[in-house]
């Protein structure tokens, strides 16, 4: 069984609203933005629709910052002990 890494993700926007918390811990087999986005999305069906496209890939509209910067690619390996902030896409205003 592949070893999993646990990481804390700071949530903003819809993620914070829907999960009612400002941070979650997720465990992923590969520490990449894509796997982190999928792991957070899996925690709420409404959030999943905002974060994941119909083909199962994460939306580029969802913003994820690793150590304060957007990653070059969603498949990029993240160094250990990162600061991660995620802010899902927002389709319309109120």
């Amino acid at each position: 069984m592949a070893k999993k890494t646990t990481v804390t993700v700071q949530l903003r926007g819809a993620a914070e609203a829907l999960l009612l918390t400002e941070a979650v811990e997720v465990s992923v087999t590969k520490l990449t933005p894509k796997e982190i986005l999928k792991a957070v999305a899996a925690q709420n069906p409404l959030l999943e629709r905002q974060i994941i496209r119909g083909d199962g890939s994460p939306r580029l509209s969802t913003k994820i910052l690793v150590n304060g910067q957007p990653p070059r690619s969603l498949d990029e390996e993240i160094p250990a002990g990162p600061s991660i902030i995620m802010s899902p896409s927002m389709p319309c205003d109120g």
Binding site: L60, S61, G94
Partner: peptide
């Protein structure tokens, strides 16, 4: 910035007045 937004959900938008 938003290349692949989902369509709106079609229901009432949850929103707090001060955020708007």
């Amino acid at each position: 910035v938003f290349p692949d937004l989902p369509e709106g959900h079609g229901g009432s938008v949850p929103v707090f007045g001060v955020s708007t």
